[in-house]
Computed example of a mutant assay.
Amino acid sequence: MSDAKRNAELWRLLARVRGLRVERRRRTLNAAREVLHQANARIEQRREAIKSHDAQRASILQSCGHDKRAGRLWREALRLHDGRTPELHRALALAIREQSVAADGVAKASAQLQRETIGRDDAVERARRFKAALKDRE
């Protein structure tokens, strides 16, 4: 077998292997995007929980001033309710950090896909050139 034919087969095989690597990177990118989508959804859930918590607080505050005898109970309810606020804000901060990590994962997966795609395209082009050179010889 001639060197040109061997080179053509080698680059054709390399193009196929790199094509498989591109598909694997594409799946990785899609998975990273799904993780990012879920992180964005968690942030939205946390923000909605804080809004709901704030609305409940306003309702409790209104009830505190209506009845003097039950006022102490309402103030205790308000204190307990306010005690949960830092927990909600910590959960939001954690969700934002998770989203940041997920966004970094998407960026990294995208860069890897781009690198693999360039390698595949190069291998396909070289295989074409070697194949064309073989046809020219014949």
Rank of each mutant, 00 (worst) to 15 (best):
L36R: 13
I96S: 08
D121E: 14
Q99Y: 00
A111C: 07
Q38V: 09
R24S: 12
L88T: 05
Q45H: 10
R46N: 07
G119A: 15
V101C: 02
L134C: 15
K51T: 04
N7S: 12
R46I: 00
L113G: 01
L73S: 12
H81M: 13
L36E: 14
A102Q: 08
D3M: 07
V35W: 00
H37K: 12
W11L: 04
R24F: 07
R79G: 03
R18C: 11
E87W: 04
R128D: 04
A93L: 06
Q38C: 11
Q62W: 01
A32Y: 05
S59H: 04
S2P: 12
R129S: 09
T117Y: 03
R137M: 11
R84Y: 02
N40L: 13
L80S: 09
E98A: 12
R27H: 14
L113Q: 14
R69Y: 10
A123N: 03
D67Q: 10
A132M: 09
G119S: 12
I60F: 02
R69L: 14
E76S: 11
R12W: 00
H37R: 15
P86H: 03
D67L: 08
S52T: 13
A93S: 15
L14G: 00
A39Q: 07
L78I: 03
R18N: 15
Q38Y: 05
E44M: 06
L78D: 03
A107S: 14
S110T: 11
G83S: 10
A15D: 08
H66E: 13
A8W: 05
A132S: 14
R47M: 10
G65V: 10
